[in-house]
């Protein structure tokens, strides 16, 4: 009993429970769900969501919000595609270009929020509008294809693959999943063991206190947005390794999925609390729902209903738990006073 109570003290446990129940249910309904190939395949396609969610996580932890993830990722994909067509596809250079583009956009967002005090939702709404307008203006909505083999080959790399690859099956860990895991591990260490990471939690928890301790709040905000930009840059490059063509319209509305993944992972939207682990669970939950609906042959139109209901359920449960906790603390106070 105590163990269960302790387990549910973590905000991540709600989403973890839902995931376990879904995995059990889906495995009963369709045996192919719980296979290595299936997981490798759906995690590969959702690695973009996971990496982007890590970026948005940092921004949300500071108490801000970033709705420009979709625009930034789309911008990065177009920039690296055009870069490759002009200068060739050295994967290493492409990664640097992608990350730099994302980081640059992040700096712009960060400066708008930190220096001009524009509320983050408005600032990122504006930059997202500008980026999407510019992309559509520039590409005319056309796809960019014919990317150099040197780069697209990277997307097919498998790790721990067995020597015989059977036709159609994956048989190894796709490189995209590895990128997501590396990004998650780095973000975890940044948040837990660096001054920057601790500052982000402090800023999101209470901006005034953070300043009094000696954190430079403006710089932290700019850095958080920049880190988010870096992650969107990585997400853009990873997306291009999967699709091997670039469609600047592919990400319209994607920011809602990204925010959904972060929020499902128990991250407080008002900042200061949340974890990389939770965000990854949020991504996992969204991916399992999408994959599960396909495997159980339920119409994809149900996808948004199920995702929406789970978001409503998870956030309501959090609030109800917090309220119950508050009531309990108040009672304890009264008892103490009487004694």
């Amino acid at each position: 009993m105590n163990v269960i109570k302790r387990f549910y003290r973590y905000k991540e446990s709600t989403v973890a429970t839902i995931i376990v129940l879904l995995v059990i249910g889906l495995t009963i309904l369709n045996r192919t769900f719980l296979t290595f190939d299936n997981w490798a395949s759906f995690l590969k396609s959702n690695s973009v969501l996971g990496i982007a969610a890590l970026g948005t996580l940092l921004v949300i932890l500071t108490g801000n919000i970033d709705i420009s993830s979709s625009g930034q990722i789309a911008l990065v994909t177009v920039v690296i595609a055009k870069f490759m067509l002009a200068f060739g596809g050295n994967p290493f250079i492409v990664f640097i270009v992608g990350l730099a583009t994302g980081a640059l956009m992040g700096v712009v967002n960060g400066l708008l929020v930190a220096k001009l005090k524009i509320p983050s939702i408005i600032a990122t709404l504006a930059t997202n509008t500008i980026i999407n307008g510019a992309l559509r203006w520039y590409t005319n909505g056309a796809w960019i294809s014919g990317l150099p083999d040197e780069f697209t080959r990277v997307g097919d790399i498998m790790f721990f693959a067995s020597s015989e690859v059977e036709n159609g099956t994956i048989n190894g860990v796709p490189i995209q999943i590895l990128f997501m895991v590396i990004a998650a591990v780095i973000t975890f260490f940044v948040l837990r063991y660096t001054m920057f990471g601790r500052g982000i939690y402090a800023l999101g928890g209470n901006a005034d206190s953070a300043q009094r301790i000696g954190f430079n709040n403006d710089r932290l905000t700019v850095m958080a947005f920049t880190y988010a930009g870096l992650m969107y840059g990585l997400a853009g490059v990873v997306y291009t390794t999967i699709m091997k063509t670039v469609d600047s319209n592919a990400f319209i509305g994607f920011e809602m999925n990204v925010i959904g993944a972060v929020v499902l992972g128990g991250v407080s939207i008002s900042g200061g609390s949340g974890s990389v682990f939770g965000t990854m669970l949020g991504m996992l939950l969204l991916s399992i729902i999408k994959n599960g609906l396909v495997l159980t042959r339920i119409s994809t139109y149900w996808q948004s209903i199920v995702i929406g209901i789970i978001i409503l359920f998870a956030v309501s449960l959090d609030i109800i738990n917090i309220k119950r906790e508050e009531k309990r603390t108040i009672k304890v106070d009264i008892v103490k006073e009487e004694v």
Partner: peptide, 11 residues
Amino acid sequence: VTLGTRSVFEG
């Protein structure tokens, strides 16, 4: 809330 209901209404 509206992130969730938006998804539900759309669905």
